[in-house]
């Protein structure tokens, strides 16, 4: 059996927010008791709308933000406190990519020098070895040495994201967190980067946490998928199966809302009501005000994520067995 590389146990994160200048500070539960694990070589996709807490989750997994509750374990060991030597050693093995490559790169430094930086920081190899490694990294993301001599401003969006990816791979990490890495790219360029990520993941045996709002991209790249709504996982399962047979009413609406070229869907589920607001979390199941199937119990009791079968977990009072009510109604 493959061991889990990343184990997340009941992590929560609360922010204090003031509404207006003189308003009373309120607590915003960005992430609320999240648990999951990612096996070695596996990609877990986290999908959700804005405010669902997916980025906060990514940051906590990397130790960039301490969870208020719960803990994260990486390769069997807890995440070391930020700034310690142990943390540095751990961080060389886990890297991240964000949505905006231009914001992640220094505009006044040739990109090759930026790819090299992690090698300098972690003191890996001799000078000649580092040069060779930069060349190898550029090649692995389908770029040439001449691209390496350019500044970020002289590269296209897709090329910049490749540079960020090459830099993230410099220290030969085991684990990569990608937060909306292709959302800012055009469709054709997005496909290039997605293909590259999948190739690299297979070749290097990377474990990935892939965060996106785009169902299509998530399905393409992930082996397992977790759907988040207002800080909680509402459904978790194998990627193909989850999108083919969504069980949670929210997942069903998400899948149905994804427009498909070639066919006009006639029975789209259009959710009514406002988008989720983490500062005003509804009681009980956070989704109940927008749910077509909600019953009285949903407004009172928070549904727990429970196993439906050996491959699927759902947090819904109405989805309890393989023959769920919501499935029939849909």
């Amino acid at each position: 059996m493959t061991a889990a590389l990343v184990e997340v146990q009941g992590i929560s994160r609360t922010y204090r927010m003031r509404s207006g200048l003189f308003g009373r500070p309120t607590s915003v539960h960005a992430v609320d008791g999240l648990s999951f694990s990612i096996l070695k070589g596996e990609t877990l996709g986290i999908v959700g709308e804005s405010g669902s807490g997916k980025s906060t989750t990514g940051r906590m997994v990397l130790g960039l933000e301490p969870p208020d509750q719960g803990h994260v374990r990486f390769d069997g060991a807890p995440i070391a406190p930020v700034g310690t030597a142990a943390w540095r050693a751990q961080r060389a093995r886990m890297q991240m990519i964000f949505q905006d490559p231009l914001g992640a790169l220094d505009r006044r430094l040739p990109v090759a020098a930026q790819i090299r930086e992690p090698l300098d920081i972690h003191d890996i190899g001799t000078k000649a070895e580092r040069d060779a490694r930069v060349h190898e990294l550029l090649q692995s993301v389908d770029l040439s040495d001449s691209h390496g001599r350019r500044y970020p401003g002289a590269l296209s969006g897709g090329q910049r994201q490749r540079i960020v990816l090459a830099r993230a791979l410099a220290t030969k990490p085991d684990f990569l967190v990608c937060d909306e890495p292709v959302s800012a790219l055009d469709v054709s360029i997005q496909a290039q980067v997605v293909n590259l990520l999948i190739d690299l993941q297979a070749r290097l045996g990377l474990t990935m946490l892939f965060i996106s709002h785009d169902l299509r991209v998530i399905r393409q790249i992930s082996s397992k998928v977790a759907v988040m709504y207002l800080g909680r996982i509402v459904e978790h399962g194998d990627a193909d199966d989850l999108f083919a047979r969504p069980q949670h009413p929210y997942t069903q609406a998400l899948v149905s809302a994804s427009p498909a070229p070639g066919r006009r869907s006639t029975n789209r589920i259009v959710l009514t009501g406002d988008p989720p607001n983490p500062a005003a979390r509804p009681s009980g199941c956070a989704f109940h005000p927008r749910c077509r199937h909600a019953i009285a119990r949903c407004a009172v009791e928070v549904p727990q994520l429970a196993a439906l079968d050996d491959r699927r977990q759902v947090a819904c009072h109405l989805v309890t067995g393989p023959q769920s009510q919501t499935q029939d109604a849909a």
């Binding site: 296209s156 897709g158 090329q159 055009d186 469709v187 054709s188 360029i189 997005q190 496909a191 290039q192 997605v194 293909n195 999948i198 169902l215 299509r216 991209v217 399905r219 393409q220 193909d240 999108f243 083919a244 899948v255 994804s258 498909a260 070229p261």
Partner: peptide, 24 residues
């Protein structure tokens, strides 16, 4: 064709995306 081929499918078998090489 390239634009449509570059779109990841939401159902069916996963295939390698047909990326359009190069940039605009």
């Amino acid at each position: 064709q390239g634009l449509i081929g570059a779109l990841p499918p939401l159902d069916g078998v996963r295939r390698k995306l047909q990326a359009i090489p190069g940039t605009v």
